[in-house]
């Protein structure tokens, strides 16, 4: 039978776990920079799996391993139950409804060559909200209520998730 750790031993274990996690994070950060440079997207333990999948052409939502809450973007801590394994990847239909949009005529210098960009909010059927660009055929005529699908496409040399009118 194991003796319960003392308060001091528990704190020692906690500190050791933080250090071990940080060692793993440094390795992942180096890999993240190989793909994305200095960002954005910026490195986080909660989102690393998502961005790796996106670079490989796959779009996922996130799910809490404890309570099953499906959310987006991925998080380090579940916003519902505060469990710390909130960033499991969740397969999605990637289909939803256009809620609203705006055409960006003034925006970041990095995106100037694409302006005006149609920035859109799509509510997926899984009950989560995604902000992205609405692109492709039918984007200009799309009105709130139109069905959309989230796809992965290369924009300015990188894979991003974008919306297409269905």
């Amino acid at each position: 039978m194991h003796a319960m750790p003392t308060e001091h031993e528990a704190l020692e274990n906690y500190a050791e776990n933080v250090k071990a996690r940080e060692d793993a994070a440094r390795e992942l950060l180096a890999q993240h920079k190989e793909v994305w440079g200095e960002g954005p997207p910026y490195f986080s333990l909660g989102t690393e799996k998502f961005w790796r999948a996106l670079a490989a052409g796959k779009f996922y939502l996130a799910r809490c391993g404890h309570c099953g809450h499906v959310h987006f973007p991925p998080r380090v801590v579940c916003p519902e139950c505060w469990a710390k394994d909130a960033s499991q990847l969740q397969v999605t239909s990637a289909v939803g409804t256009l809620i609203t949009f705006t055409d960006l005529h003034v925006t970041s210098p990095a995106l100037k060559s694409l302006a005006p960009l149609r920035l859109a909010i799509v509510d997926l059927d899984e009950g989560v909200r995604v902000l992205t660009w609405l692109r492709g055929n039918g984007a200009e005529e799309a009105e709130p209520g139109r069905r959309c699908r989230i796809v992965v496409e290369e924009v300015l040399g990188r894979n991003w998730f974008t919306a297409r009118a269905v």
Partner: peptide, 14 residues
């Protein structure tokens, strides 16, 4: 959100 919203060109106006 600097990774999931900012890169899409979001501004306060938007």
């Amino acid at each position: 959100d600097a990774s999931f919203i900012g890169p899409f060109g979001m501004t306060p106006m938007s």
